[in-house]
Amino acid sequence: MAKPDLNDSQRLSAESLALIDVEVAKYPVDQKQSAVMGALRIAQTECGWLKPELIEYVADYLEMPAIAAYEVATFYNMYDTQRPGRHKITLCTNLPCMLMGAGELGEYLKKKLEIGFGETTEDGRFTLKEGECMGACGDAPMCLHNNHVMHTHLTTEKVDELLETLK
């Protein structure tokens, strides 16, 4: 397989590469592949999503086969292998959240954003996703903003406020 074309637009910033190096250092020297989950997360945080060239770049950086990195990127559901909107809202609708009104919140969000789960608004501002258990059920209902920021105890008012702050 040809080496990915590492032109400047596909490289990661020095900051991101430094963060990836921190991940690599956690594992035995002959087990760099262990850092692929962290490396893909860091790459996605910088670039917004994991386009194929970026996954190949990360695989190359970790000296692992590109297909093995693709497998990881497509197996774990917080990686975006399709370009999402600027703000990805992942709403947990699992049972404990459902008991606390997540189903109704989901309908509210769909109506307000005029999209369904798994869709992106026309202006590219929001993507709405249905999530599975986030491990914070006592604070239900909840959502994640761009994977890393959790908003809990949601109500329609709090959803309105949140969306308003996300430009």
Binding site: K26, S34, M37, G38, R41, N77, E132, C133
Partner: peptide, 10 residues
């Protein structure tokens, strides 16, 4: 000791 973050897989 090191921390490893999952990324969405029950």
């Amino acid at each position: 000791l090191h921390a490893h973050l999952g990324y969405g897989a029950y």
